[in-house]
Design a protein around this nucleic acid. Structure first.
Lengths: 193, 193, 193, 193
DNA sequence: AATGAATGAGGATTCATTCAT
DNA sequence: GATGAATGAATCCTCATTCAT
């Protein structure tokens, strides 16, 4: 059984605190002190572990992407048909652990950050590529030749729903979100409803 | 012929400089000095005219929204059929004056800002409401009862494309964007391609 | 009949505005813009006439001192006895045109200013010397040898009452103030009450 | 033996530096940088401990008032008769630790500040009330019914001497000050000299 | 005479970051 | 491993002052 070092615990709780703080402030303009206070440690410790504020934020971003990845993976587990694969990606995108105000808020802010930080941009590119490849992979057998475009449409819609929900006042509604995208998928596949 | 006062000129150039600066920095974390320098004036003058940095940013946001509104209006000018109305909204959204790296970058940042600033949130709500009402208005005659959902799908896709292009490395491609959304519109209307 | 030039009018109204502004703000931390706005002119004009903010403040100080001097002079007009002379100074100090919240506030602030500005210190010294000489002049025939000390006591009491009223919440009460000092005068002269 | 934390030390030295700086500048228009430099720390630390410039100034004011209070208390220690009580207050007011150029300068500036800052006004009211109650308490047995007025006269004279000395070029002379007020007290009590 | 336009210099305040303990 | 103490650099904002018109 792996013993979790104190370092791992501290880092994890700082990352969690970062996401929570971004969510509660609705902005990346959070101070290291705020993060540290929320995590119940001193800000100096945050620097001790992460070296810089930027690294803290990037770690939070990585964490969010990994959660997302795990969620999609979980959905992909029992998949048999291509269609199910596409649906899995969609469902994973709107899983309860992702599709939350604070996470969306952080997500949105990372989009912004990616415009300045190469590392953030890289992470986001990885996510986009993975999403796309999953979608294309599932769509290719279903459509003749239009898989790329279809994937782009679906991905755009997912991102759009995210951003809109991040701004919206109410709680994100995963069901509605999923239905909307799957309806699009249906139409892409030529199934009239 | 309307004489433009120097105040109008300065305010306009400061707003332009703000958008340009946001675009070039890819972030709202720009200083008033940067804006002022780009506009060729002192930062004190920016404060003289706008009172606070926030007002400068909000003015820039208002400007972008007004450009967008004008663009949509222009597209709506010659419209005869409901279908054309929906297309007009889509085309307006991807018009050359909106669908530019710097504007998208500013747009994205305003989404973030709206999470903290009530005034920014209000402006964004106005935009969303107008977009939605235009879409629903055009879609209602075309679909039976599903207009609201369809509008949401289209709006989400537009926003998603925006955010993706803002991040993308290449130049935004309005044609591709328009095609993607119009294809979705076609499918929503049950026209198989 | 002397025609008052526009310059004289402007200067006077700026000085008045200065005193009013100091009174209303309760502080010398007033901006030239505030003064100018209150006087209904542009701040540039204030500089045109006075050259610097300091000169405006000093002019206001001179004005207050001249009002005070005039008030004392008026009281000294019908004086016949030494005792009346002393009383005249006291009454002049608490005349309605001096003993007002705004003037007291300005007065207090000039005391502060005098600590840094030699010119303000000089003006205040002139005031003090005149006050003292008037008092001593009246007291000398009334007391044997103690006139200087008595004058200092009276002057201190007058200043103290000023400062206390400047801080007090209610309106300055000239009658009470006068009575208090005159009672002191009576006692100095050995008249038991 | 109480261990003094570094925080206590820093706060104390910042407060001391504040008073010294006010004294040397003769004005409350001092920058936090000046205070901090005089205290040998960075201005950021001053903010760390006090939160705002205003709090620094108010702390300095509180400190001065507490010194004054302690001084009066010390004088009140061995008091037996009412007359001694009044004298104790007077002597305390002109004690060496209060009646110093820099402290008087600060005092004067606090009077000004009190016109804008409610908290400063409150502190000053507390001081005035305490002074007055001490005086009245001592005077009541000595005079029939005139204690209140007498107290006001004495308090005014004390304040007046303060303000005059604050402005004067020479060093404050506690002896002369005390004599002047005590002479007044004598006369108030009907003792002819 | 009068002002709108413009700015440089400066001040309060914040914050990422360092370091001795 | 952990932190309290400390700061340099930056940022928003103000204001006295200048000047062309």
């Amino acid at each position: 059984m792996p013993k979790v070092g104190i370092e791992t615990i501290r880092c994890a709780s700082l990352v969690q605190a970062t996401i929570a703080e971004i969510g509660s402030q609705g902005s990346l303009d959070i101070t290291v002190n705020q993060i540290a206070r929320r995590a119940g440690v001193s800000s100096a410790l945050a620097f001790h572990y992460f070296g810089s504020k930027d690294q803290i934020l990037l770690s939070a971003m990585r964490f969010i992407l990994s959660i997302y990845g795990a969620e999609v993976l979980r959905e992909l587990a029992g998949v048999r048909t291509p269609r199910q694969r596409v649906e899995a990606v969609i469902r994973g995108s709107f899983a309860a652990s992702n599709f939350r105000q604070d996470v969306i808020s952080a997500w949105l802010n990372f989009y912004v950050k990616a415009q300045k930080s190469p590392e953030a941009a890289r992470l986001l590119r990885v996510y986009k590529r993975r999403l796309r490849s999953n979608l294309v992979c599932g769509l290719r057998p279903l459509m003749d030749g239009k898989a790329e475009t279809a994937a782009e449409g679906i991905a755009s819609m997912i991102d759009g729903i995210y951003i809109r929900e991040g701004l919206g006042e109410g709680k994100p509604d995963p069901e509605r979100a999923t239905d909307l995208v799957i309806d699009y998928l249906d139409r892409l596949m030529g199934v009239s409803i």
